[in-house]
């Protein structure tokens, strides 16, 4: 049951991304990439094969809708791989209890820096791959900054609205 509702949630985010978020084009080019919340939603498990493979499939389905080859798959797999490393650094705790871990029981400043770091890394990787050249590096950087702000705003708004137990 829990798995089922998780998959429905992911499908909902996928459709939200491709049908609404990809069409916003605020100020001509700024879009939120909220599908990155996959990385924060996916439960912490020992078997990282499942995580990486799901991230790849999820990113690829976004790619299918937005005609981008594999850039979303690439960047989503990358942040999924490094998330444990960053979680350990930010929480300053090398032995995380995988079974009982809940991100929303952690202090809010740590949650924020965790979400911020992974989002910025993901967006930077994605926009570099989308531009595919070093000539537009300033464009890439400005895109990264603006879109990250937009994504994080939408992500926390969504969390506050839809989480049953309000965090903080």
């Amino acid at each position: 049951m829990n798995n089922f509702s998780f998959i429905i949630k992911l499908l909902f985010i996928l459709l939200l991304q491709v049908l609404i978020c990809n069409q916003i084009n605020f100020l001509g080019y700024i879009n939120p990439y909220i599908y990155v919340s996959f990385v924060f939603l996916f439960p912490l498990i020992k078997n990282r094969f499942t995580l990486l493979l799901s991230a790849f499939i999820y990113g690829l389905s976004i790619d299918f809708f937005s005609d981008t080859g594999g850039i979303h798959a690439f960047s989503l797999v990358f942040v999924s791989y490094i998330r444990l490393f960053f979680l350990k650094i930010i929480l300053r705790n090398p032995n995380i209890d995988f079974l009982n871990f809940n991100l929303w029981k952690e202090p809010s400043d740590k949650i924020f820096s965790y979400v911020l770091t992974l989002t910025v890394i993901h967006h930077f990787l994605m926009f570099s791959l989308a531009n595919f050249s070093l000539t537009n590096i300033l464009n890439t950087l400005s895109n990264t900054v603006y879109s990250s702000i937009f994504t994080i705003l939408i992500y926390f708004l969504g969390v506050f609205l839809f989480q049953k137990k309000a965090p903080l």
Binding site: F56, L60, F78, F132
Partner: peptide, 9 residues
């Protein structure tokens, strides 16, 4: 997985 994605890109 990353090389598959890079190939597709």
């Amino acid at each position: 997985l990353e090389s598959v994605a890079a190939f597709l890109i």
